[in-house]
Design a protein around this nucleic acid. Structure first.
Lengths: 189, 189
DNA sequence: GTCTATATAGGGATAGAC
DNA sequence: GTCTATCCCTATATAGAC
C-alpha cells in the first residue's frame, strides 16, 4: 500500500478509536510506519488528513449499509437486516462517534461528511418505510422520516449503551426492542 | 461558591463540551477562576477532579430523570414525559458523551458512574414498562428490558443525529417515531 | 489555601538536507 | 519523497514561598 494510503488508514483507525482531539500526528505516523516529513509532504496537516480519512470512512459505511438496504424482502426484513448486521459494537460507529468531538463539530468542513452520511442513512430508511407503508406492511400511521430517525438513533444509542456497560448485550437489547415495536401485525388488524 | 465547587463545576462543563481528552487542567482553572496551585491543593490531578465531576453530573441526571419517572399517569405518559422533557439537545448528554472518550472507557473508575447511570435509567424504564404491561396498557408481547434499552438508545442516538445535522429537529423526529411505535392501541386490539 | 517558578513530555508544524 | 533538526506552544504536573 502507498504511503498516503497507509496514513489515511491509520488516521481512520485512530479517529475511530480516539476521536479527532485524541489523535496526534505523531501517533498517526507511528501507526502508518511513516515519518514526519512524509506525512507533511502528502498532507497539509492534521485537518487535511482527517478530512480525507473521514470521507473514506463515510464512503465505506454507505457501501456496508447499502448492502442491507438493497437486499430483497419486505421493509421490515430490510430494516432488520440493517439492524442485525454484524458490527464491532464495542468500538462504536466510526462516523457517529465524531459528532461527540468538539473540533469536528466546530468545523463545517469536518462535520459535512458526517452530516451527509447520517442524512443518507435516514433518507434510505425513510424510503424503505414509505414503500412498506404503501404495500400495507405496517400498522397505519407511521411517518417515514420519524421512523427512520428512530432506527438510526437506536443504532447510534445502542453503541452508547454497549460502551457504557462494556458489553454488546445492551446494543442487542435495544435492537430487539425496536424490532418488536416495528414488527408487522400478524393478527390482521 | 467555594473554590473546590467552582473547580468541579468548571470540570463538569468542560467534560460535557469537550470530553476528558479534550479538557486540560489549565482550561479548568481558567473557567473556575482558580490558580494552578489551588487546583492541585484540592485535587490530586485531572483524573481525581474528573471523577468527582462525573459523579456529580451523574447524580444530577438521576434527579432530573427521576422527576419524569416518578410523575403520575400511565406507563406511556411517564415515558413520554421522560422523552419530551426539555433538553439542551445540541450539547448532547453529559453522561452518554463520555462513552465516546477513550480515556474514560479505559478507566474502570471513570467509566463506573457512567455505567451505573445508564443502568439506572434502563432499570427505571424497564420497571415502568413492566407496570404498564401488567395493567394491560400495551400491546401484548413487550420485553421490558428490551424496550427500556430502546428508549434510552433512542435518546442517546437522538443526540448524535442532532449534532450531526446541527439541528435539534432530528432528535425530535427520533422521539416522535419512538412514541408512535410505543403508543397504546386505542382500537381495542 | 493560593501563588509563582520550574520541569518533562508531547502537540503540531516548518526548514532544509538528502 | 523521506529524513532530521528545530521551533514554539500546551499538557500535566511538582516544589516551595507566602
Amino acid at each position: 500500500m502507498s504511503t498516503p494510503d497507509r496514513l489515511i488508514e491509520a488516521t481512520q483507525e485512530l479517529l475511530w478509536e480516539r476521536g479527532y482531539v485524541g489523535t496526534s500526528p505523531k501517533a498517526i505516523q507511528q501507526h502508518a510506519g511513516a515519518g514526519q516529513g512524509s506525512m507533511y509532504h502528502h498532507f497539509s496537516g492534521k485537518p487535511d488528513l482527517a478530512l480525507t480519512a473521514i470521507r473514506r470512512t463515510a464512503a465505506e459505511m454507505r457501501v456496508t449499509a447499502g448492502r442491507a438496504f438493497d437486499s430483497p424482502g419486505s421493509a421490515y426484513e430490510r430494516i432488520s437486516r440493517y439492524l442485525l448486521r454484524e458490527r464491532d459494537v464495542l468500538r462504536g460507529c466510526p462516523v457517529g462517534r465524531l459528532t461527540m468531538d468538539p473540533e469536528v463539530i466546530a468545523s463545517d468542513e469536518l462535520r459535512a461528511p458526517v452530516d451527509e452520511t447520517i442524512a443518507w442513512l435516514r433518507g434510505r430508511l425513510a424510503a424503505i418505510v414509505k414503500e412498506g407503508l404503501e404495500r400495507g406492511e405496517f400498522a397505519h400511521p407511521l411517518v417515514p422520516d420519524d421512523i427512520a430517525a428512530t432506527v438510526v438513533a437506536t443504532v447510534q444509542g445502542g453503541y452508547v449503551l454497549a460502551r457504557a456497560s462494556g458489553s454488546a448485550d445492551a446494543f442487542d437489547a435495544a435492537v430487539r426492542g425496536l424490532l418488536t415495536l416495528l414488527a408487522p401485525r400478524t393478527d390482521g388488524t
